[in-house]
Computed example of a mutant assay.
Amino acid sequence: MTTARTWFITGVNSGFGRALAERLLAAGDRVAGTVRRDGSVDDLRSRHGDRFRVDHLDVTDLPRVREVVDAAFAALGRIDVVVVNAGYGLFGAAEELSDEQVHHQVGTNLLGAIQTARAALPHLRAQGGGRIIQISSVAGLAAHAGASLYHATKWGVEGFMEALAQEVAPFGIEVTLVEPGGARTEFARGNLRLSEPLAAYDGTPAAFVRQFRDGVAATVPVIGDPGKMADRIIASADERPAPLRLVLGSDSYAASTAALRARLAQVEPQEAAAASTDADDA
């Protein structure tokens, strides 16, 4: 990047948020970040001073999301890129999950993401444009047993952001959905939660996720380099037009393309049957 920019990133204490913040600050950019654990980024604050602004935020507190976003724009003036990153994975068969787990997963991954984008929009419009980068997942394009609620939030945010991109294009605001596969971050240790297992699901496809209970199992290869992924996300902010979807990892590419081809194969043979339900005067 040739010109220093200002970024707003939710969840900068770990994972992609941390990797992005470290690289951007080292390159001379300004970063406004949010954390749930106070003190978790003190090293970055001491190293980068007033180029790194930090606010405490739980994105399930929707009014607080707007307060934090408004304060960041007020303090920093222009924010060029808003990265909606905060989230976690909830795994287990749908029946195994508690109502509280369901509510919190949707509140964090979907409602928190929607509110962060909505809070930024008036400011991005007023400044004449900007970029929203939503950290989604290959789980937003391909679904597997044992992750139904996680998929629900990621598929939901995919639909929201794709429609949003069309809504805000007239204002010079662009949107990118990032689709990473497995990455060697702290996700499995700190951002992954599991349901209490029901014996009825022993030996079923949904039981596959139970091997994550003590961390990522050796049978699940994790090939994504979070540093390389962060570099690719940062580089994408310079691309015009913005890529609507940014696929990261060969595993993500393989799973996404297979799922999309399978979906087409399910739908395309129904062309004549679908037309048969049209009104006679259509």
Rank of each mutant, 00 (worst) to 15 (best):
P63D: 07
I133C: 06
G130R: 04
A188I: 06
A126Y: 08
E100M: 13
V157Q: 07
F16S: 11
F212T: 11
G203C: 11
W155R: 05
D281I: 13
T34L: 06
R23H: 11
R23W: 03
V65F: 05
G89V: 13
R53H: 13
L90H: 07
G17L: 07
V69R: 02
E162C: 04
E158G: 06
A274T: 15
I133N: 01
V41E: 07
A113R: 02
T257I: 15
D80S: 05
L76T: 03
V54S: 01
Q101M: 10
V168M: 07
T204M: 15
R263G: 09
V102W: 08
D70V: 00
R240W: 01
D278P: 13
E186N: 14
A188C: 09
R53W: 05
Q270K: 14
Q127E: 03
R232P: 03
A218F: 04
P221I: 06
Y201S: 08
V31Q: 10
P243L: 14
W7C: 02
A71Y: 00
A217R: 02
V138M: 04
V65E: 06
D38I: 00
D70C: 01
S137F: 07
G15N: 05
I233H: 13
I9D: 08
D238N: 03
I223G: 14
G156Y: 07
I133Y: 07
W155G: 02
T34G: 03
E186W: 12
S276P: 04
L164W: 04
A255N: 08
S40F: 06
T2S: 14
L24V: 10
I234R: 13
L20N: 03
L76V: 03
L24F: 01
E268T: 08
H56R: 13
Q166H: 14
E268C: 02
T10S: 05
F208L: 07
V220C: 12
A119K: 01
T277N: 13
D281N: 13
D214Q: 10
P205Y: 03
D225W: 04
E174N: 10
A19E: 15
G181A: 09
D43S: 14
V168H: 11
H123F: 05
G11H: 00
A93S: 14
V138H: 01
P180D: 10
L164M: 00
G249R: 09
G107Q: 11
A183W: 10
I173Q: 10
H103S: 15
L192C: 14
E174Q: 15
G224W: 06
E162T: 12
F171M: 11
A72M: 02
I132K: 00
G28T: 02
A237R: 00
L164N: 00
A147K: 02
N13R: 09
A237H: 00
G112N: 04
L198S: 15
A265Y: 03
R47W: 00
D50Y: 00
